[in-house]
Structures are given as C-alpha cells and as structure tokens.
Design a protein around this nucleic acid. Structure first.
Length: 570
RNA sequence: CGGGGUGUGGCGCAGCCUGGUAGCGCGCGCGGUUUGGGACCGUGAGGUCGAAGGUUCGAAUCCUUUCACCCCGACCA
C-alpha cells in the first residue's frame, strides 16, 4: 500500500483529547473512526490488524478441533424467551421487528442459537464432543460505551460452543484454556487467567483472560507465588483469627451518642475496627426480600458473592425509609441481635447472611437497632443467628491468598473468557439431547468460549506503545515494513519504487511512504502507526548504494546493501 | 439511569457574561522556496454556530424544549 493513496492517513490533531491511549493512538494513526458512541468504522489499516488477529484465533481454534460456521445475527426472540434471558441478561438486548411482526433479538451472544441449531440434528454419542465457533458482530446496548474499542455497542466476537458429556468436559475446557493461551501469546499479549463470576451466561465456573492494563475495567487479585488468580468478584482469601481465645463476655447495651459511620463507632468505643460488626442492608428486587449482610468490620461485602449465597439477582441498597419504618431499625445502628424481633411483621421477608469472618472475632460491638444505642460483646450463635453463613467478603490487596501468600491487586482488560455451562441450557431448551450408547436420549454438557477481537486489538495497543505511537507485535502489524522515501531525485524514486515492487513480489507486507513530505513527518507517522521495521531510501543512501533499516522498538539503525536488507527482512 | 461537562468549517478551539460584519491554529487546494525528526512565503476553498420553538428591529450570544457526545459511578468480549 502506498501511503499517498492510503485512506485513513495519520493525523496528530485528530481526537487529541481522548483519555485512553489506545483510543487516541488508533484514531490518530488512522486505524479507526468513531461513527456514533460505541460504534466504530475500522479503516483499512485497522481492518488489516483485525484480520490478522482473526487469522490467529482461527488457526488455533481449528488446531483444537473446533469447527467454524456462521449463525444469523438476528435471533428469533422465542429462543431467548425459552431460556428466560429476555429479562435476565445484564446487557440490554436490542430488538428488531420484521414486516410480519416477528420479533428478533440482535445477537449479543449466541448460546440459544447454537443449541437450537444442534438440537435439530440427530447426534450420536460417537460425534461427541464437538465445538462449533464463529466470528460475528455482536450487539449490546451498553448503558455507556467508553474507552474507544474497549467497551462498545457493536463488535466482532469469536464465540464457540462445545457439546459433549460431563466426563469429556474437563478436557474440552482445558483444551480451550490452552488454545487461548496460545492465541494471546502469538498475538503478543500477556494475559493472566483469572477465575471469575459467570454472570448472566449461566453455569458454575468460568475464567477470564485478562491483559494487564491501567485502562482496564477488570479488577483482579493474584498470588504471584502460587499462581492463584481471581476476579475481585470471586477472589477468596484466608481470614486470620483475631481474638478467638478470649472468653465470652456478657452482652450489654450502652448509650452511644455517635454518628452513623464505622469510623464513628471505632472512635466512640475506642475499640479496633475489626471488632465492630458491619451490617449492610440490601433489597433484592428479583426475589423481593431484604438481605442483611453481616461481616467483620475491617472487611467489605462482596455483592457478587452475597447474591450467590442468598440466591439473589438484583440487589440494591435498602432505603433509609425501609430501614426505619419496615424493619424498625436505624441506619448506622443496624445489628443482627434482635433484628426484626419475633412477631414483627415486615412487608417483605428478611434473610440474614453472615460472613465466615464473624467466627474470627469475639465480643464484638455494634448498634442495637435504635439511634444512639449500641451493643457490646456481641457473639455469633449466642446472641444472634444467621440464616445463611458463607464467604461474602471482598478481597483486599495484601491479605493472604488461599495458598497463603499476599494477594496483589491488578487491573486489566478482559479479552476473552471460557465458561462452563453444564446442563444449564440443555435443561432450559427442550430437545438438546444426543443418543447414548444404549440408545437413550441424554442432555448435552456444554461450555462456551468468547474472544473480543476489537478489544484484543485495543489491549495490544495498550500494552505496546510509547510516547511516539503504537508498537505492533509483528504477528498482528498492519505491515511489516514502513518504506520511507526521502527526496525526489529520480534515482531515489526509482530505487524506492523497485524495492517496493520487490517486497510486494516477496509477499512482505509493506507500507510505502511515497508522499512528497518532509522526513520528520514520515518518521513521525511511521512511529505513530507502529510498523515494526522502517526502511529508508534517500538521495544520499542511494548514492552510496545503501539502505537503512531500523526497528520501531530501537533507536539505532543499520546501513545495509540491497542483498543484506532483503536477507534480513524476508 | 444518577452526578458533572461539551456541542461553532475535516480536527483543536476563541467569540456567548454585556445581542449588531463568524474568527484563529492545524489540515485541505493552487504557485513557489524547501527536504534526515512534524519547514516557510503567497493565495484560495470550506461553517443552516447540534435541532426546534420563543423574545427582539436584529440571536452563535438571552429564554424554553429537545437531541447528541464526553467524563465519573452501577455492568462486560
């Protein structure tokens, strides 16, 4: 490609106020252009990279035995109703109606479509396991698009769906794990594999592939020694005992003229924060219940864990009005001891969920469900009982991982994930069955596996750039060589044109800067676009029968003969 | 959806408070001088001032409504 003819030339002023490096660089370098919020044009250079990433994904998926196909983008709405996901997906489904009034969802993920496809085939156990995948545009009506390609409303995703038996699943899952590692490795992206919450997709466990980046939205924790890695939603840690050998003291009520915060309690009683009982009151809109989360004062409630423990779906904080009037308590003085006394009728049922940390401290203190009244020496079991006892604590940097070493907090971009779906969809969708050895119908055990192509592209830029611009890994670079011609001398032009032809014939991706521009501009654009190697042909060099070769990542260049150059870059 | 902000040539902005000829820089076209890290001179094209309504002799500017976009929060490939 000649830069003089390139559609989407670099422009340093374009989008100069963007906050995210990848957003700014990709825009300035002429790879992407915003259409409307969260929807982007991929310009020729951007498409080139996009396709290189797709080729890498395809190669490794095929190697793993997965089979590529394409599904419709419009999904019959009945399918989403069949799995009850028209209301439960967290991203807003986009809908469209045809002239006959048939309703479709614009696909945001395609579990239902995959199941619907395979249930119309007569499949025997001999065909199992198998894995089908596609690259297709996905639509998600995100509340807020942001960060350039990091979070958009329309994007290409590689989504794969595996079908098999429960026994086979472990190998299939591990196979995709290894495949993903190979994919991101080849694309030049370092990723951490972290355990995560499976959210709206369904199933019991899943892993995210996260590229560490400041701009990332995923917070996760890793134990660098043992390799334990988990998203903050699911990260577990060891809760050390505090004063479990202390004798139980009698429960007391004391006047407490203090404010409503944890700090107020700490200051008033002059006792450590960990000894305070923290009570957070939620309301679950899905199951219409109050959920009181109780936890040791130095810890925070992890709402994901809480929802799982309590079987809740749609948590919100309880209002002050609900706390005072329906639950007869007081914000800042909530306490599990005598919380909603017997006989008192509330509008909605109450569930008390206690964190395991409550067993690591004794003689705790906290409110008494009345303004300016506190309890001292609160002890679980003796003074109050919880309906559900579970780990509902949010991990913090520095606390010991389950393997004992301190957790390190990181931020990153989730570029892919693998989900165990189990029988979730087979149970919800009738006829998702194969014939087993004895001729009986059996449900499929499923998994699904996604990679966001555009997000991967942006993550690569986040991880590979400097002050001057992008630094593409060779495997995904839009071109391998940036050929800059300096000067208009006919000899120089001839040498540069010839070299360009030679490289094209050798099938080496080359971007030929044949513009009548000054050297500084060409060099700056080469750096901004991030092409791995720069070759210079100039009047002086031509006179000396030399070519200059420089790697984007390096400051020094070398002078080579024509033969040496071709040998080096082929 | 809650909070904050912005809409003026392709891009970045000024003008708005205090109503009266739409301006600057970059980019783009043309002519010329330049050519190893984003040159310079001359010249030219390009704007229903986000949209609708209102006030006024007169609105980019004041008022009302509305839309879009950005940033922070709750969600995800």
């Amino acid at each position: 490609m000649r830069v003089s003819k390139l559609f989407g030339k670099p422009s340093k002023t374009e989008g100069s106020d963007y906050k995210i490096d990848s957003h700014r660089l990709l825009t300035q370098a002429g790879f992407i252009r915003e259409s409307s919020a969260g929807r982007y044009y991929l310009l020729p250079l951007g498409l080139k990279v996009h396709e290189k990433i797709i080729a890498i994904v395809r190669k490794h998926m095929n190697k793993a035995g997965a089979q590529e196909l394409v599904m419709p983008i419009l999904h019959p709405l009945e399918l989403w109703q069949e799995t009850n996901r028209t209301t439960t997906v967290s991203f807003e489904l986009m809908k469209i109606t045809d002239r006959r009034g048939a309703e479709f969802a614009l696909g945001g993920t395609a579990e239902e479509m995959a199941v619907d496809l395979i249930r119309h085939f007569n499949i025997s156990y001999k065909d199992l396991p198998f894995n089908v995948y596609q690259f297709s545009n996905k639509f998600r009506d995100e509340l807020r698009a942001r960060g350039g390609l990091l979070r958009v409303r329309e994007f290409v995703m590689k989504d794969a769906y595996s079908f098999g038996t429960e026994d086979q699943f472990k190998d299939v899952y591990q196979g995709m794990w290894d495949t993903y590692k190979a994919i991101f490795n080849e694309a030049g992206l370092k990723v951490d594999v972290v355990a995560a919450d499976n959210g709206y997709i369904g199933g019991d466990y899943c892993h995210e592939f996260v590229a560490e980046a400041k701009a990332g939205e995923s917070r996760y924790f890793i134990d660098e020694k043992s390799g334990y890695a988990a998203h903050e939603d699911v990260a577990t840690f060891t809760i050390g005992d505090k004063n479990t050998e202390e004798a139980l003291k009698p429960l007391q009520q004391v006047a407490a003229d203090r404010g409503p915060t944890m700090k107020d309690g700490e200051d008033f009683h002059k006792l450590p924060l960990w000894q305070q009982v923290k009570d957070v009151l939620y309301f679950d809109e899905a199951t219409k219940r109050y959920i009181l989360a109780v936890i040791r004062g130095d810890l925070d409630v992890n709402e994901t864990k809480l929802m799982q423990a309590a079987g809740a779906w749609d948590l919100r904080a309880a209002t002050e009005d609900e706390i005072r009037h329906d639950l007869a308590s007081e914000p800042g003085f909530i306490c599990p001891v005598d919380f909603v006394k017997h006989g008192k009728k509330t509008k909605f049922p109450v569930v008390i969920v206690g964190d395991k940390s409550l067993r690591t401290a004794r003689n705790m203190y906290g409110g008494a469900n009345k303004k300016h009244l506190d309890h001292l020496n609160i002890n679980i079991d003796r003074d109050y009982k919880v309906d559900i006892e579970a780990d509902i604590a949010l991990a913090q940097a520095g606390v010991p991982s389950p393997d004992g070493n301190p957790l390190v907090e990181k931020r990153g971009i989730e570029v892919g994930n693998i989900f165990q779906l189990g029988y979730h969809y087979s149970n919800l969708m009738e006829g998702a069955e194969y014939t087993d050895e004895s001729g009986k119908r059996q449900k499929y055990y499923m998994g699904c596996y996604g990679i966001g192509i555009g997000r991967t592209l942006a993550a690569i830029v986040e991880a590979n750039h400097d002050q001057k611009g992008i630094m593409w890994p060779e495997s995904v670079a839009p071109a391998k060589i940036y050929l800059a011609r300096l000067g208009n001398n006919p000899d120089t032009t001839k040498v540069a044109d010839d070299l360009y032809q030679t490289l094209l014939e050798k099938n080496i991706d080359v971007l030929y800067d044949d513009r009548d521009a000054r050297p500084g501009e060409k060099f700056a654009d080469a750096d901004l676009m991030g092409i791995p190697y720069r070759v210079v042909v100039s009047d002086k060099l031509v006179a000396a029968k030399q070519f200059e070769l420089k790697a984007r990542s390096q400051d020094e260049f070398e002078l080579l003969t024509h033969a040496e150059l071709l040998q080096k870059i082929s």
